[in-house]
């Protein structure tokens, strides 16, 4: 029982955190059709920005805001490379995430030791004396352990963050600016004939997508207990897998908001991974399992698409599940 409950808490915690990346991908990948590789870098950048502030004793909430801004900034750079310099989406992401490897490394060494050289193993440890999010108001009002269940603070914190960011995204997509963003992904020429630059909407979308990834990175430090240079690896797969699993598993549930589906997708994905680990799979196989589950999700969602195309009625009520 204890094992079961703690397993649930583990995958719920990571599910909530990675749901933020998946929501970011909902903007860049689903709405704008942009396979954004920048996330590997911005996830870590968010963690670094947060970690540096926290390790210097600055309020972690400010750290979270800084993480958001850093993600927004580098996502915007990806967008600018694509829109202004006409570089292909995949390459833009690879370029920015590559340059971020250096940026993150230098930021950590410079931030901790005042040394700009950078060392490949540079990491920010999160000792017990640090005022992290789970230690400051109002999360510290929650007991971390009730009976046999531990890790409650993290769980509540992550849940609250996910809900807040989901509601913000839902609200944003319903604003004029959000409507224009969705239109830019749907039909860029239409936005042009509305006398608006579709490129600006794309840049904004990529900025927000990466800001979400960076916040996820910052929150993830609470689970990992440190900020290390390999944290970002695999985040593209985690984010996209969560997104695609969520959207395809719940594709027939029209009443559910896409953002809700995406969060559930992230939880399902993490549940699968956690179960595989608990069944005795060595952790070295983690990324292999991640890739395999993602592949299965991709194949299934493609199958579903073909099926729905074949059975779709001409005036099919495939209505507004997009907002």
């Amino acid at each position: 029982m204890t094992v079961f409950l703690n397993t649930c808490i583990t995958f719920l915690q990571s599910g909530f955190v990675f749901a933020l990346i998946a929501m970011g991908y909902y903007i860049s990948y689903t709405i704008l059709d942009f396979p954004d590789m920048t996330v590997e870098g911005t996830f870590l950048s968010g963690a670094v920005a947060y970690g540096l502030l926290v390790s210097h004793g600055i309020n972690p909430w400010l750290g979270l805001i800084l993480a958001f801004i850093v993600g927004l900034l580098f996502g915007t750079i990806t967008g600018l490379l694509h829109v202004k310099l006409k570089i292909k989406p995949l390459l833009c992401g690879i370029l920015v995430s590559t340059l971020l490897i250096s940026v993150n490394l230098v930021a950590v060494t410079a931030g901790l030791y005042g040394d700009f050289a950078g060392e490949s193993s540079a990491m920010i440890p999160f000792g017990r004396d640090l005022e992290t999010l789970t230690a400051v108001f109002p999360i510290n009002l929650i007991p971390n352990k009730i009976g046999i269940v531990s890790g409650l603070r993290d769980l509540v914190l992550f849940l609250v963050m996910v809900v807040v960011f989901k509601l913000l995204l839902d609200a944003f997509l319903k604003t004029k600016c959000g409507l224009l963003l969705r239109a830019a992904g749907d039909n860029a020429q239409f936005v042009t004939t509305q006398a608006k630059d579709a490129g600006n909407s794309k840049i904004l979308g990529l900025g927000i997508g990466n800001a979400y990834a960076a916040v996820a990175g910052a929150l993830y430090t609470e689970i990992s207990g440190n900020v290390n240079q390999s944290m970002g690896i695999g985040m593209v797969v985690i984010g996209l897998a969560s997104l695609i699993i969520g959207l395809s598993v719940f594709s027939r549930v029209h009443r559910m908001k896409a953002t809700t589906k995406v969060i559930l997708g992230a939880i399902i994905y993490q549940a699968c991974l956690t179960i595989a680990q608990r069944l005795g799979m060595p952790s070295a196989y983690n990324k292999l399992i991640m890739a395999i589950i993602f592949t299965i999700a991709l194949v299934l969602s493609e199958r579903k698409k073909v099926k729905t195309k074949a059975t779709k009625q001409p005036n099919g009520k495939e209505s507004a599940n997009h907002a």
């Binding site: 944003f172 319903k174 604003t175 004029k176 600016c177 959000g178 409507l179 224009l180 969705r182 239109a183 749907d186 239409f190 509305q194 006398a195 608006k196 209505s319 507004a320 997009h322």
Partner: peptide, 23 residues
């Protein structure tokens, strides 16, 4: 992928600023 109403709202707003007010 936008509803008819949303399409109309976009067109209705042509030439103005697309800010954070209700779409």
């Amino acid at each position: 992928s936008l509803t008819i109403t949303e399409n109309m709202a976009l067109a209705d707003h042509k030439g103005k600023k697309f800010g954070l007010s209700r779409g």
